[in-house]
């Protein structure tokens, strides 16, 4: 973490827990805040996404990651190609029943804290593939924190979704929100 960025965030007037006088009394050399705010701020600007790309939505993901839209501006630049180093999984494309155990395994291998983004129509609901082979929404397999609609979504929609996810991560109230399904608190079965 870059210390100056933390300080810039923590000294914003709406976050600051200390008065100007207190800080000024020590020459502005410290800031005070709640630890959870600082940790969640660090989390939301340092996503390590794992792209679980199976279909044509992947082109839009690559475009979002590329220089024109540049997901790096939002701190989610560096894709990790092992789930053990990732904390955000982009499920991009159609998930079939044959593939479902693999996706579940990838999710289970990720270290906490972890978030799931359902990218595109097929991933969110099965999309046009209303048949025997396709999972009708990955929320039947793993918890999902954010749905991005579109077939495929434009990069602007992806970035908008990422910003919304960052807002959610900043304001998560429970200590371990990823342990429930849609905030229901029900633990995942093994």
């Amino acid at each position: 973490m870059a210390n100056h960025r933390i300080a810039a965030y923590l000294t914003r007037s709406d976050r600051r827990q200390t008065t100007t006088d207190e800080s000024a009394a020590f020459g502005g050399s410290f800031v005070a805040t709640r630890l959870r705010d600082a940790v969640q701020w660090a989390r939301k600007y340092s996503f390590f996404p794992y792209p679980f790309v199976t279909a044509c939505c992947g082109m839009e993901y690559f475009s979002t990651a590329g220089p024109r839209y540049d997901i790096d501006r939002f701190g989610a630049a560096l894709p990790r190609f092992t789930p053990r180093q990732a904390d955000l999984v982009f499920v991009v494309g159609t998930i079939t029943h044959r593939l479902a155990p693999i996706l579940r395994r990838v999710y289970d291998q990720m270290a906490e804290p972890k978030w799931v983004v359902s990218f595109g129509a097929c991933t969110s609901s099965g999309g046009p593939y209303d048949n025997y082979a396709v999972v009708q929404g990955i929320d039947r397999i793993i918890p999902v924190h954010l749905y991005i609609p579109g077939c495929p979504p434009r990069p602007e929609a992806v970035l908008d979704g990422l910003i919304k996810l960052q807002a959610r991560v900043q304001h998560e109230s429970r200590a371990t929100p990823w342990k429930g399904i849609h905030g229901s608190g029900r633990p995942l079965p093994d």
Binding site: H97, A100, P101, R104, D130, G137, L188, P189
Partner: peptide, 27 residues
Amino acid sequence: PLRKDYGKRDEQPVQPLHGPAANEPRR
């Protein structure tokens, strides 16, 4: 499944479905 007498939407999940969405009826 491509036989005509196989139901078009007869899923056979390999990964057991769970969660609030698992019991939703199909569209």
